[in-house]
């Protein structure tokens, strides 16, 4: 794909190893530091033993958390990258197709109406996210789904579901703590079981995303050019949106709502390696992993032992960073 910003971009051969090294470094740091202040000696001793609290902290709390951060960051960034190409909209993120509002409405209903089923919230949230996405597409469909119609239907469905969530919260204002903890998007107290579920989702979703690069590049050039290249625009757009919804819904079901990753990271990736998805998608995935790893590390150490959920950290730092990108919009494509 021709890239007008070719001369500015960094080569994939330089970028990918740097990002992989950054992930490794951040992962080691995330395993090394946390609210429990452990010395390197304690950690090594614990790893060579078979029992004890330090071993549990490293292997059963921090390690699944690191894996989840990498996968969630990768999945959300891939979801955002796909949506921005499919919708021809630099502001598209998984929220636009109802993933966040659908998952929130269903999760809030479960927490407040069926509290004893709260352990099944991930399953319900996943279903809610996909149903909301299907509803938006259904409303936007007129023999095909024009991006503008999808965005407008998204605004309507998001507003409606937001209203349902707000109503439920209003009527249950005394017991919102569980809902708020979930909505803030947290990786605290996540198990190996959840990490395994995310690994399975991630493997499927990211593979499908990687296989979509050619279609993403075609769609990015506009519907007419894509059609002239033999792409069935309507069908491909639907499939790609489905992949994006699947990726985002899987993260929401495990960690709650983590904003800004799917919105910001694709822009940074585009700024670094250009708009060709063959380069942009893997860089966005790796960069997303770095961002969520770093955000979680900050959240669990900055006021330790109190935990700031990763979703809150992302909102605090993501907003100003997005404004920075906006000021440099020529380079970021915003």
């Amino acid at each position: 794909m021709p890239d007008s910003k070719e001369r500015r971009v960094i080569s994939l051969r330089i970028c990918v190893p740097i990002l992989i090294a950054a992930i490794c470094l951040l992962s080691l740091l995330a395993l090394r530091i946390g609210s429990a202040r452990l010395s390197m000696r304690q950690i090594l001793e614990a790893l060579s033993s078979t029992e004890g609290p330090v071993r549990a902290i490293i292997l059963d709390i921090r390690l699944p958390r690191v894996i989840l951060s990498i996968l969630i960051g990768g999945c959300l960034s891939a979801a955002g990258t796909i949506l921005q190409a499919v919708m021809h909209n630099p502001l598209a993120d998984p929220g636009i197709i109802g993933v966040s509002s659908g998952a929130s409405a269903v999760a809030t209903a479960v927490f407040l109406i069926l509290p004893t089923a709260s352990r099944s919230v991930p399953m319900f949230a996943f279903a809610g996210a996909l149903i909301a996405c299907a509803a938006i597409y259904g409303m936007a469909w007129r023999g095909g789904a024009e991006p503008v119609r999808v965005v407008l239907a998204g605004v309507a469905v998001n507003a409606m579901l937001g209203g349902v969530t707000a109503f439920l919260m209003l009527m249950n204002s005394e017991n919102l703590q569980g809902v708020l903890a979930w909505m803030n998007g947290s990786l605290n107290a996540k198990s190996w079981g959840q990490a395994r579920v995310m690994m399975a989702y991630g493997a499927v979703g990211l593979t499908m995303a990687a296989l979509s690069v050619k279609n993403l590049n075609a769609l990015q050039m506009g519907d007419e050019i894509a059609q002239s290249l033999g792409v069935h625009v309507g069908r491909v757009r639907l499939i790609l949106t489905g992949i994006s919804a699947f990726l985002a819904a899987s993260t929401v079901s495990v960690a709650g709502i983590i904003g800004f990753v799917g919105l910001i990271v694709p822009h940074v990736a585009r700024m670094v390696v250009g708009a060709n998805h063959k380069r942009m998608l893997p860089v966005a995935m790796l960069l997303g992993a770095c961002v969520v790893l770093l955000a979680d590390l900050v959240g669990r150490t900055i006021v330790a032992p109190v935990e700031i959920p990763v979703g809150i950290v992302m909102s605090i730092f993501g907003g100003p960073f997005f404004l920075y990108l906006l000021r440099h919009r020529k380079r970021t494509g915003l």
């Binding site: 429990a36 709390i61 903890a181 947290s186 107290a189 959920p309």
Partner: peptide
């Protein structure tokens, strides 16, 4: 921790260490 607390989102690590 340093003073009486009311409601805190505290980390699992701390919970394990304090046991």
């Amino acid at each position: 921790q340093d003073k009486p607390a009311s409601l805190l989102p505290i980390s699992m690590e701390e919970l394990i260490l304090q046991n």
